[in-house]
């Protein structure tokens, strides 16, 4: 799960995650034009809400991450967007924690940025249908990568990687599916009616 609570990870992992997340946030804020700020705020709010709403997936209950979609729309600004969303979740609901904020931000924002970069490589304004397909691929991949990074953070703190990875990735298979469909619809629509929002 993307919300690792306090007291689970070891100190070196927390510090490394914090530094990398800070670098990501700094880069995101530096590239952020004031005119794009409302877009970042909106996606931050969307992610804040999406990951608080639990969906029943068979016997398990999961929630959407939507980090892939945020990365495709925001690029590096996904870092500050996710930091704000995760900070509020930690402060208001105790999901995640303040000490692990850096690691959690990194685990969700790094796949988001990567999804954005891959999407720009695949996207061709002349072919809106291809944009939808690329969006599905990138958002599903972002969720998978987040799961693997969560498992990796646990492994780096002395947990068994395989058990954690199997649990996290398996429970997120339905999330990957739902997000792929959702992102391909949303990004596909954007690509057709307002392609400049993605540029």
């Amino acid at each position: 799960m993307a919300h690792i609570p306090d007291g689970v990870l070891s100190n070196p992992v927390l510090v490394a995650g914090g530094i990398l997340a800070m670098a990501g946030v700094a880069r995101g804020l530096r590239e952020l034009e004031p005119v794009r700020v409302p877009k970042v705020a909106m996606l931050s709010a969307v992610m804040f809400v999406a990951s608080l709403i639990h969906l029943p997936a068979g016997p398990a209950s999961v929630h959407l991450l939507l980090n892939g979609m945020a990365g495709m729309v925001l690029g590096w600004a996904a870092f500050p967007a996710l930091l704000a969303a995760l900070l509020l979740q930690a402060v208001m609901f105790g999901f995640g924690g303040l000490l692990v904020l850096g690691v959690n931000t990194l685990n969700m924002a790094a796949p988001a940025v990567l999804a954005g970069l891959v999407f720009r490589r695949l996207w061709n304004p002349a072919q809106p249908r291809r944009a939808a397909l690329a969006a599905a691929l990138c958002s599903g991949g972002a969720v998978l990568l987040t799961g693997l990074m969560v498992a990796g953070s646990l492994a780096a703190s002395g947990r068994e990687f395989e058990a954690a990875a199997r649990l996290v990735v398996l429970t997120h298979l339905p999330v990957m599916g739902i997000e792929a469909v959702f992102a391909s619809a949303a990004i596909g629509l954007l690509a057709r009616v307002k392609p400049e929002a993605l540029a």
């Binding site: 705020a41 804040f48 969303a85 208001m92």
Partner: peptide, 27 residues
């Protein structure tokens, strides 16, 4: 532990407020 609607609304408002402050400082 239950999440209530007004918590959600408060969170959304805070996010917009935070980014609003950032935009204001930047401008």
């Amino acid at each position: 532990e239950r999440i209530r609607l007004h918590d959600l609304m408060g969170g959304i408002g805070t996010i917009f407020g935070l980014f609003g402050c950032w935009a204001w400082l930047q401008s």
